[in-house]
Design a protein around this nucleic acid. Structure first.
Lengths: 171, 171
DNA sequence: CCTTGACCATGTAGTGACTACAAGGTTTTT
DNA sequence: AAAAACCTTGTAGTCACTACATGGTCAAGG
């Protein structure tokens, strides 16, 4: 029986391990979501164990789905609030998704440029030799010294922050 | 004169602010690189200020160029070591770049899928209405509940970790 | 009855690559 | 002389977890 596997999954409440199994989320992550106020505090059994119901399962699944879409937890928080207070204007949701989409598309373009640069860089090294003659290292050093390179094509002073931001996490 | 701007840039040493100006790196970041052993400790002036020479400038530029290629600092560290000890085999450099390239390409594919998903999601909402009828929110909730969706097409149990790893930072 | 093992609780610290202060000293400008 | 801009150190914050330490709870096996 699945009930045996999930330890009272079919009962009226789940322990944190069962919830984790069903959603594929580490129990430590679930506790983390609770700590930062993303998941409501569950009721407790007499022994202090957290007792989760279907509502928690739904909410956690929603969070994970949004995370699979690479949304930051702050955005997920806002969406959950809109779900809880469905009287507001839908435009908030629109803007949130639009902003997030722009974010992702920006990072996508950066990564595409990055891939081209790395591929060209990779092509500089052929066969086996000492690092002293390595075309990749030479290219990297030359590029860093501001000569026109496969990556920047410009000077050292170019602001790298934009590139890095768009490549890194959403924050 | 540029000398006035950069405070002894043309002298035999630069202060941290000047180095930051020339390379476009925040002085706090430069100190951070020094702290984690990426930049060698510079000599000090009599007043305790850090005094940087051309060697530091080159090294910092190299680091930033690698970072612009989205390499983790650990990889940069290894490349710097290979530059300092150029007797080793060049294959190390090759492997490092190859691994990094594979990383970036993986993230690129994740982001492409993500963009498609978000665009489809965005298309669910038309015009102005209350969140209670918002197609985006409905889609997100439905998807989270395991119905076939524009994103997963599968169940809640799907392991999201792979997606997230490939989308996030290199680490 | 005792032990083993799996589960749960809390709290703290670590990750990467910075960023932002706080509290004080120095140099330059007004 | 005073104010602004620079420098120093150290510490703590960011994001979304992850890992660990320490201890409590519970079911099954010997």
């Amino acid at each position: 029986m699945v009930k045996d596997l999930y330890c009272s999954f079919w009962g009226d409440d789940m322990r944190i391990g069962a919830l984790g199994q069903v959603t594929g989320v580490d129990p430590e992550t679930i506790r983390y979501y609770e700590r930062i106020g993303l998941l409501p505090t569950p009721t407790r059994r007499t022994n202090g164990y957290r007792a989760y119901g279907p509502a928690h399962l739904e909410r956690l699944a929603f969070i994970r789905h949004c995370r699979a879409l690479d949304m930051p937890l702050a955005d997920v928080q806002r969406l959950l609030h809109l779900l809880d207070h469905p009287l507001d204007d839908c435009q908030d949701v629109d803007r949130l998704i639009d902003t997030h989409l722009a974010h992702v598309q920006g990072r996508l373009q950066s990564l595409q440029a990055l891939t081209r640069q790395l591929e060209q860089l990779r092509g500089r090294c052929h066969g086996q030799h000492a690092t002293a003659e390595c075309g990749i290292l030479h290219e990297l050093v030359a590029a860093a010294q501001g000569e026109s390179c496969v990556c920047h094509g410009g000077s050292v002073q170019a602001p790298l922050k934009d590139v890095q931001r768009s490549v890194s996490q959403t924050g």
